[in-house]
Amino acid sequence: MTTQFLWRPRPPSLLSPEKEEEIAKNLKKYSKKYEAEDQDVSLLLSEQDREKRRMVQEEWDTWVKKWKQLDEEEKMARQTLRDGEASDEEEEYEAKEIEVEEVLEVLEEIVMYDEEP
């Protein structure tokens, strides 16, 4: 079994050696500058996320409020359908179990019985 390692060389730098050295010297200054920019962008994005979540929450609250209002409006109609009983609450329901037996068919058959073996 043979193994092969492929190596791709890096392209030559577009910066002069002096410029590369200057960048290496001032790397901390550059990193602080870009970290501050990254933090600003991160704060902006998190602010947008919070705003989006707040809007979604408001939309949900509006939807729930609308459906609660519709439920209250229909409560009287439901009570009328139940002959005036307000049984919207689950505790107020009364379960009744009724068994119904129904005879579907009666079949009489005369069977002859012989005692002879």
Rank of each mutant, 00 (worst) to 15 (best):
E105S: 15
Y34F: 15
E97A: 12
E59K: 05
Q69T: 05
E108G: 04
K66G: 06
E73W: 01
E97Y: 08
L27M: 14
S31G: 05
V103W: 02
W60H: 09
K68I: 02
K96N: 14
R50K: 10
E51W: 03
V100S: 11
A86W: 08
D40I: 01
L6G: 06
V100F: 04
S13N: 11
Q69R: 04
E22A: 07
V111Y: 07
L43H: 02
G84F: 01
E59P: 00
E22S: 02
D40A: 14
L44M: 07
E72C: 00
P11T: 03
W7T: 07
E22T: 00
S31Y: 09
Q39F: 04
E92D: 15
K25S: 11
L44E: 12
E37S: 10
D114N: 08
D38Q: 09
K25L: 05
E89I: 01
K68Q: 15
Q69A: 14
W67P: 00
T62M: 07
Y113R: 10
A86H: 09
G84W: 01
L14S: 00
R78N: 12
D61S: 13
Q57T: 09
A95W: 10
D88W: 04
P11L: 04
E102T: 02
E35F: 05
E102I: 00
L44Y: 06
E94T: 09
S87A: 11
L81R: 02
D71T: 03
S46H: 03
L107I: 13
E51C: 08
L45F: 04
P12L: 12
K75T: 05
T62K: 08
E18C: 03
S16F: 01
V111E: 15
Q4Y: 05
V100R: 07
K66Q: 11
Q4R: 06
E22V: 00
A77L: 07
I23C: 06
E20D: 13
T3C: 14
E116T: 05
V64A: 15
D40P: 00
S13W: 01
Q4T: 08
V106M: 09
K68N: 15
K29T: 08
L6S: 11
E89H: 10
E85C: 08
L14Q: 01
E105K: 14
F5L: 13
D61L: 12
R8H: 12
E102W: 00
Y30R: 07
K28R: 10
P117D: 15
E105D: 14
V103R: 08
P117Q: 13
F5I: 09
E21S: 04
K52A: 12
D40C: 03
Q57G: 11
Q48S: 06
L27G: 11
K19N: 01
Q4F: 05
K25G: 05
K28C: 07
D61R: 11
P12D: 15
T2G: 15
E20A: 13
E22W: 00
E85N: 13
R82T: 05
